[in-house]
Design a protein around this nucleic acid. Sequence first.
DNA 1: AGTCTGAAATGGTTAAACCATTATAGACTA
DNA 2: TAGTCTATAATGGTTTAACCATTTCAGACT
Lengths: 245, 245
Amino acid sequence: MGVHFHKAKQNRIYQDVVEQIQNAILDGQIVPGDKLPPERELCEMFQASRGTLREALRILEQKSLIEIRLGMNGGAYVKDANAELMAENLAILIQSQNVSLRHLAEFREVVEGAVAELAAVRATATDKRKLADLIGQAAGYREQGPHLWDKFVHMDEKIHIELACVAGNPLYRFIHHSIHKNIHRYYDTLLIVGKDEMEENFRDLSAIVDAVVTGDAERAKRCAADHVRRFSAYMEQKKRHTPDR
Amino acid sequence: MGVHFHKAKQNRIYQDVVEQIQNAILDGQIVPGDKLPPERELCEMFQASRGTLREALRILEQKSLIEIRLGMNGGAYVKDANAELMAENLAILIQSQNVSLRHLAEFREVVEGAVAELAAVRATATDKRKLADLIGQAAGYREQGPHLWDKFVHMDEKIHIELACVAGNPLYRFIHHSIHKNIHRYYDTLLIVGKDEMEENFRDLSAIVDAVVTGDAERAKRCAADHVRRFSAYMEQKKRHTPDR
DNA sequence: AGTCTGAAATGGTTAAACCATTATAGACTA
DNA sequence: TAGTCTATAATGGTTTAACCATTTCAGACT
């Protein structure tokens, strides 16, 4: 690998090491999938001890910039998915009780609305076909009865992701991912889908996609926001009947 | 399906240390301002070596859960400002060129709109007085000429923060903080405020606050979104005239 | 009363050794 | 020949013990 590191300076050496490697990654000198040299070699490059170097690696790992694998062929691999960090952050905010489920729902209403609106404006013919296809699959699972209902739930997720992609602003993808990851554990216990809920959910999704395909941004926004509102209300209600977690 | 297990690896002592300390913090067993014992004592408690323990501390520090100070009376102090993380995170997304300034502006338009809307609905009498007061201060700085213009710019910031607080959803505070921190370095070089820009900015702010005070949520949303749009357009324009960064 | 100084507390760094996990090549077996 | 076992080597994980650097503060000295 052709990247040149210079001797680590500064008071806190590990910080300097972090910065050098981080810059190399963010500048594209090292790309996702690449492997950094083994720790012992990095030590020589940076003229630092292994302990210090490992503290730097821990920080980079926590920033989701690298992933460290064990064993032969192990080492520090440069990662791609920057979305993980946001999810982790959000998790901490929630756990420290600064942000409640209700806050999250309120925010999600706005975000999903904006996503649907943008998607309606920006969807290409290909995007529209893809969305219609996803709705078709969901319809299929819906009809085939209870044993495929969890597949249906999964489609809901896929449709939301697709909408975020169509919207064309990566921030929305990241945010959606973060929220979903954090809300997921509530799904598992609270979201026991009955036929009625599924039908309603399907109607909501169809309405959103229909509005997007039609290019009716205003309606898309309204439908998406309504969808989230109904869904959140449903979750709140379930939660009240499932005492204390 | 539904349930997600993760590999049950006992190894990686530092992870275990991180979890124990993090839980203690998030559960409130240790509160912000508290100091953890010195490294050497923690080593004994966890029965781990200092190197391992320090790797754990680096992770907690990167998570903004603790802050480490040097010298006598130094050590690991528990922090409470969780907003830093999100900012750091967003910075990485931007620097890795996954998110552009334009994306950020587009998102901000939606967010500031939602904040103003919520604020209009939820503002108490006290909130309204506070907002009116801030606008008053801004008006004062505006009139007293160029030497106070940077104070005026600062007021703009304060008003946005206050709106986010009034909106009553902490997520918006965190998001605003993140965006602001990341957009700030552009301010410094691009935002040379002339009298016209300041006047326009002041009109925008007044309009937003007026709508909020009046309780006109719809208008507040529109004014805030317009404000961000104008501001972003102004920045884009400046940027084109300031070749390459 | 003010200033200097040095000791103590604490994090930062180093070095060398050993343990644990994993991929793989090559030996062994069916 | 095909499959399976095994030894080996590459690499991260952990320990230990020592020393360096920074900061505070009590007490000495103006």
